[in-house]
Amino acid sequence: MILSYKTERLPLNFFMLGVTLLITGVALIISDVYPGVVAIVIAIPFLFTHSGLLIDAKNKGYKKYTGIFGLRLGSWTDLSKATHLQIIHTRETKGMAVLSIARNETNKVYKLLLMFPHQRILLISNSQQKVEAVAKEIAEALSLELKHAKS
């Protein structure tokens, strides 16, 4: 049984670049300027690239991948020595500055960690409800204990 989760897309500014290139390419093709096809081809990765996580419960492996059009690039890693899953929460601050205008945004983010004896791997980072639902599903499939960090 393979569990599949999409974790994120490219940041918004790259997605908007893709949209801009696509619109520009279409406008150039309509204007009989055929190099607009190049702009459309360049826009495709910006619009359709995403990342995700595959967990193979039968073979005890996981794969973090980058995907585009169903092609999932990444390598499988062994999970047989995993000890447990742990949910933690942190505060993450994202900042953006344009010219003299700066903006910071702080959010509470929940993270699902896969714990090994000498290593921990971040599987998913999202809202509390999403992380807890995914954690329960993964813990059940891999027969691992699910722990919550103390606040």
Score class of each variant (00 low, 15 high):
Met1Gly: 06
Tyr5Val: 07
Thr7Arg: 07
Glu8Ile: 11
Glu8Thr: 11
Glu8Ser: 11
Arg9Asp: 02
Leu10Ser: 06
Pro11Phe: 10
Pro11Ala: 10
Leu12His: 09
Phe14Lys: 12
Phe15Leu: 14
Phe15Tyr: 13
Gly18Met: 08
Gly18Pro: 07
Gly18Thr: 08
Val19Tyr: 04
Thr20Tyr: 14
Leu22Pro: 07
Val26Cys: 13
Ala27Met: 13
Ala27Asp: 12
Ile30Phe: 13
Ser31Asp: 14
Ser31Ile: 07
Asp32Gly: 11
Val33Pro: 04
Val33Ser: 12
Pro35Arg: 08
Gly36Arg: 09
Val37Trp: 15
Ala39Tyr: 15
Ile42Ala: 13
Ile42Tyr: 12
Ile42Phe: 15
Phe48Gly: 01
Phe48His: 00
Ser51Tyr: 02
Leu53Ile: 00
Leu54Lys: 03
Leu54Asn: 01
Asp56Gly: 00
Asp56Ala: 02
Lys58Trp: 02
Lys60Asn: 12
Lys60Trp: 09
Lys60Cys: 03
Gly61Arg: 06
Tyr62Ile: 01
Tyr62Asp: 04
Tyr62Val: 00
Tyr62Glu: 05
Lys63Asp: 05
Lys63Pro: 00
Lys63Thr: 01
Tyr65Phe: 06
Tyr65Val: 00
Thr66Ala: 00
Gly67Ile: 02
Ile68Pro: 02
Gly70Arg: 03
Gly70His: 08
Leu71Arg: 04
Arg72Phe: 02
Leu73Thr: 05
Ser75Phe: 07
Ser75Arg: 08
Trp76Phe: 07
Trp76Arg: 03
Thr77Leu: 07
Thr77Tyr: 14
Thr77Pro: 01
Leu79Ser: 14
Ala82Ser: 14
Thr83Asn: 12
Leu85Trp: 08
Leu85Met: 08
Ile88Tyr: 04
Ile88Trp: 03
His89Gly: 01
Thr90Phe: 05
Glu92Ser: 02
Glu92Gly: 00
Lys94Ala: 10
Lys94Val: 15
Gly95Ser: 13
Ala97Lys: 09
Ala97Arg: 12
Val98Gly: 01
Val98Leu: 12
Ser100Ala: 05
Ser100Asn: 15
Ile101Gln: 12
Ala102Asn: 09
Arg103Cys: 05
Arg103Gly: 03
Glu105Ala: 03
Asn107Asp: 12
Lys108Ala: 11
Val109Tyr: 03
Val109Arg: 11
Leu114Val: 08
Met115Arg: 13
Met115Thr: 04
Phe116Asn: 09
His118Gly: 13
Gln119Met: 06
Gln119Arg: 13
Arg120Phe: 05
Leu123Ile: 09
Leu123Val: 05
Ile124Pro: 00
Ile124Gly: 01
Ser125Tyr: 03
Lys130Trp: 09
Val131Met: 10
Val131Tyr: 08
Val131Pro: 00
Ala133Trp: 05
Ala133Ser: 14
Val134Phe: 08
Val134Ser: 05
Lys136Gly: 13
Glu137Lys: 12
Ala139Asp: 08
Leu142Arg: 10
Ser143Met: 09
His148Lys: 12
Ala149Trp: 09
Ala149Val: 06
Ala149Thr: 09
